[in-house]
């Protein structure tokens, strides 16, 4: 604490600014700020569009999950869900920053000033949090998916995508562990928790198919990104293994027609964006 008549009034007087900021940017990993400073923009429009998709998924998922902070079933979960949210937001910022360089836009231009139909997020990440079982199932579906996807992206010919994925993968590793552990606990815990998990699986299964849809965009991403359909087999196998150990099963419900990638969203996204964008849009041109 500086004394009452201290003379140092710069920000330094607040002490060690990195004491906790390390959680925002762990170690020397690639940060969105670094990407913004790099000369390299995505080489093609397709790569920028691809980065936008990954960024939108992580952003909307983070925006959803953020609502758990201070509402978790126990204090440890407030921290865990906050952590996952923070990681996903970090991934979103990196992907969006990179995508935006193709169009001379910042991460905030893309997050706050696009209209609903310009977002490319999956319907799965737009789904309401529901109870803790729904959040767990959504997290499990997504963590397995992102784990497979980012692992494949380590091989991407686009070095920035590979670097962002390398950082993200380490964090998604933890998200997967968290989701798996809770799936086992809730699946095998009590009758009530198992019932809620079955219901959550039924509720969210319709949005699974969209994760693996190939778009024409992938014709232009040879060597850059794996086709989503190529992740399906392993995703199914990993999920089946976890569900089996949890005493749960893949539900038998039809898939929903979802086209988030081309801007056709669930009814939820409008509300999500209204909340996320309201303050920024009230003050056009302002910096924060």
């Amino acid at each position: 604490m500086s004394t009452s008549t201290g003379t140092d009034h710069s920000l330094d007087s607040f002490g060690d600014a990195t004491a906790s900021a390390t959680r925002v940017t762990p170690g020397n990993a690639l940060r969105p700020e670094d990407i913004a400073l790099q000369d390299t923009a995505p080489a093609t429009e397709a790569i920028a569009q691809y980065a936008l998709r990954l960024g939108d998924d992580a952003l909307i998922y983070a925006q959803r999950n953020a609502h758990w902070v201070s509402r978790g079933p126990e204090l440890e979960e407030d921290i865990a869900l906050g952590n996952i949210t923070l990681d996903q937001l970090g991934h979103a910022r990196s992907f969006l920053t990179y995508a935006g360089k193709k169009w001379g836009k910042t991460e905030d231009d893309l997050a706050y000033w696009r209209e609903e139909e310009e977002f490319t997020s999956l319907h799965l990440v737009e789904q309401p949090n529901g109870d803790f079982a729904e959040t767990t199932v959504r997290g499990l579906f997504l963590a397995i998916y992102q784990h497979l996807l980012y692992t494949r992206l380590l091989e991407s010919s686009d070095r920035t995508l590979a670097a962002i994925s390398a950082k993200a993968l380490k964090e998604v590793d933890y998200h997967l562990e968290h989701a798996e552990l809770w799936t086992l606990r809730l699946g095998q815990g009590t009758e009530e928790s198992a019932r809620r998990m079955r219901r959550a699986l039924e509720k969210l299964w319709p949005y699974v198919e969209e994760l693996f849809q190939d778009e024409p965009l992938y014709e232009e991403l040879e060597g850059v990104a794996p086709r989503p359909s190529s992740l399906r087999e392993e995703w199914d196998a990993r999920l089946a293994d976890i569900l089996e150990r949890a005493g749960l099963a893949v539900p038998e419900v039809p898939y929903a027609m979802c086209f988030g990638r081309r801007g056709e969203h669930s009814e939820h996204l409008g509300y999500i964006l209204a909340e996320m964008q309201v303050l920024a849009r009230k003050h056009p041109g302002a910096t924060w």
């Binding site: 126990e74 928790s193 809620r196």
Partner: peptide
């Protein structure tokens, strides 16, 4: 609302 989660755990 977290009671059932803690019980399951």
């Amino acid at each position: 609302e977290g009671a059932w989660v803690r019980e399951a755990a």
